[in-house]
Amino acid sequence: MPILPPFTVSIPSSEMAVRDALKQVLAALGPLELGTEEAGTVELVLAEVLNNVVEHAYPDPDTAGPISIACAHRIDGLHLQIVDQGEAMPDGTTPLGQPVSLDVDFEDLPEGGFGWFLIRDLAKDVLYERVGSKNQLSMRLAVALQPGETRH
């Protein structure tokens, strides 16, 4: 299986632009012929990461900036780097992404807090760095593995 050439998708920060980015990335991954589950993993992780950028890195839509998604297919899966020029992560680190507690009363059932849990659960090697005025989040998704590689 040939390795896909690296590519980058850039969007302005908005919820509708996130949809566009997901569509573009999945289209560019077409040659990998991902199955439903693998394509779902890529779409879900990227959606969570990009929605977080739109909501938290660029909280004011009037001053929202660009988001870029660089994607490289390697022998151990898909390497993603998401870069924005918005506000840094609080405390300079990513949320822990603990599972939500379901052992609660009906009215306390969680309506949020799933995003980082899903990212942590589905992505490997998650690394956040603040570089100058940029946030750089990189991760690996164990999809489209080359023969012989196992899913670690």
């Binding site: 959606a47 969570e48 009906f106 009215e107 969680p110 309506e111 949020g112 799933f114």
Partner: peptide
């Protein structure tokens, strides 16, 4: 496709119905 916001919205809709 649903993301965590969509999931949260479905949970919120259930809670709006009441226990």
């Amino acid at each position: 496709f649903i993301d965590s916001s969509g999931l949260g919205a479905i949970v919120a809709s259930m809670k709006t119905l009441g226990a």
